[in-house]
Nucleic acid binder design. Sequence first.
DNA 1: GTAGGATGCTAAC
DNA 2: TTAGCCTCCTACG
Length: 268
Amino acid sequence: MPEGHTLHRLANDLNAAFADHVVAVSSPQGRFVEGAALVDGQLWHGAQAHGKHLFCAFAGEMWVHIHLGLIGSLRFGPPGPPVGQVRLRLATDDVVADLRGPQFCALITDDERRLLESRLGPDPLDPAADPEPARRRISRSSRSIGALLMDQTVLAGVGNVYRAEVLFRQRINPETPGRKLKPSSWRAIWADLVDLMPYGVADNRIDTVRPEHTPEEMGRPPRVDDHGGEVYVYRRDQQPCHVCGAMIRTKIVEGRNLFWCGRCQRRS
DNA sequence: GTAGGATGCTAAC
DNA sequence: TTAGCCTCCTACG
């Protein structure tokens, strides 16, 4: 689940559920007991996301910093005994939010939060984000654009699905070195992410095959596939490209499976 | 029922 | 480079 859109969605959902409520904070699993005790029983101060990082505010400029990692989840449900290893529970009389299997969950100061965020690249889901630092990093790098898009210090929030899909949508060869990427290609990648990722927040899933996009822009409309028609290339290796029919290819880039169409994606 | 992989990233080799 | 988080889902028998 967790690319940037998931964390922004969770921040929204937490704020909707807990605004104007006193929130009980606990760690049923036992691995966040001290931190939980320090922020237990306060009026909700708000949550915010930057890339894949989630920050929940508490009194005294303290924050609970959550990163889901690959297998973490934060789910809402009715009050009741915790199921499984619940690292963190936020609760009112009406609703609980249970955090399981996170990469980390820690109490941090405001200085620590600012330092952490200063190391993240611009987030396409942040309306105030300035893409210029990302452009500069990419334009000076010999690493491939397929690798650079996964680097959270370059761009925050893009994960393996958005990486593959935005490169397909813009017909860009993932192996293009950053410094050989055309300025127009970078502008197109950023604009497309700004356009696309809010749908992920609203729908709580990644749909890159949008009815809003015309065939002229995106190529021939795709046939619906096993994923319900939401993606062009992600996890579609050995299946025909929705646009040209060539077999989708895969290889490991930055430790993760990258999927692309070798025929459609020839731009640099 | 069981195994294996994954929308991520860190720390310890 | 590899184990780890210890969840969730799918494929397979």
